[in-house]
């Protein structure tokens, strides 16, 4: 039996909102040691989502037997919207489940809402992602990255990211004209989450689909900062850290044809 109780529903609500536009169906893997993990790839095989919610993400967590819960994320999102962000949220499943029980509790108002979501058999590819060597790692405010990704998408369907030891430059080249935004590395000791940190082994110049970057920044409400690891001619990794876990996106680059 699985029983995972979150102190607030907001984490799960934000996680599902962050991934449901990229993948429609996914398997939730549940185990006592790892908590809940998800790996899902979008239909175009360009963007991969890796979610880890350790048992420490939960107020209470037990999973007697490893479980795979196949979910339609649009349906899960409909149910998660029924609860308030500050409600307790508990996920419950039997050992051979055909549904997932989702319970919201508002202890102050003595309100308990229960929903049952039908599970599905989902046959999806799982990819082996090794810890990658990277040419550079950038940590910046998640909102600053989201603004660049959203703004530049209006100019071009591609966004070029150029990193040197003291700045990150985003460049868009579209039919109406061009644009660039430079963010300089800075350390803000008073407010460390406002810092822009660049750890550079080698300068990087990579181009990504603006549409996918806009899917990634849907995770912005989950964390103050995002860490981006880039390597020449390889997929980029975007990480939003959660308390006791993470939501990562792996995005394949674009190349000159």
């Amino acid at each position: 039996m699985l029983e995972g109780k979150f102190e607030t529903a907001s984490t799960m609500k934000k996680v599902i909102e962050a991934i449901k536009d990229s993948v429609k169906l996914c398997n939730l893997n549940c185990s006592q040691n790892d908590g809940i993990t998800v790996q899902a790839i979008d239909d175009s095989r360009v963007l991969l989502i890796a979610l880890k919610l350790d048992p420490s993400c939960f107020q209470e967590f037990r999973c007697d037997k490893d479980l795979v819960l196949g979910l339609d994320l649009e349906s899960l999102s409909k149910i998660l919207r029924q609860g308030n962000p500050e409600d307790y949220l508990t996920l419950i499943a039997e050992d051979s489940p055909d549904s997932l029980l989702i319970v919201f509790e508002d202890s102050k108002k003595d309100r308990i809402s229960e929903f049952s979501l039908k599970l599905m058999d989902i046959d999806s590819d799982v990819l082996t992602i090794d810890e990658m060597e990277h040419d550079c790692a950038i940590t910046l405010p998640a909102a600053a990255f989201a603004k660049v990704a959203r703004d530049m998408k209006t100019l071009s369907e591609s966004l070029q990211i150029l990193v040197t030891k003291d700045s990150v430059k985003f460049k868009a080249d579209g039919s109406i004209g061009t644009g660039s935004v430079i963010l300089r590395a800075r350390t803000n000791l008073d407010d460390t989450k406002e810092s822009i940190l660049i750890d550079l082994n080698k300068p990087v110049n990579l181009t990504f689909g603006a549409k996918y970057l806009n899917d990634i920044v849907k995770a912005t409400p989950l964390a103050d900062t995002v860490t981006i690891k880039l390597t020449d001619k390889a997929p980029a990794m975007f990480e939003y850290k959660l308390q006791g876990g993470f939501l990562r996106y792996y995005l394949a680059p674009k190349f000159e044809d």
């Binding site: 990819l127 082996t128 390889a234 997929p235 680059p253």
Partner: peptide, 14 residues
């Protein structure tokens, strides 16, 4: 013209 790469060119199926 830029061409979009696939993740399958970088990661193998488990």
């Amino acid at each position: 013209q830029m061409k979009q790469a696939s993740l399958l060119s970088f990661f193998s199926k488990a």
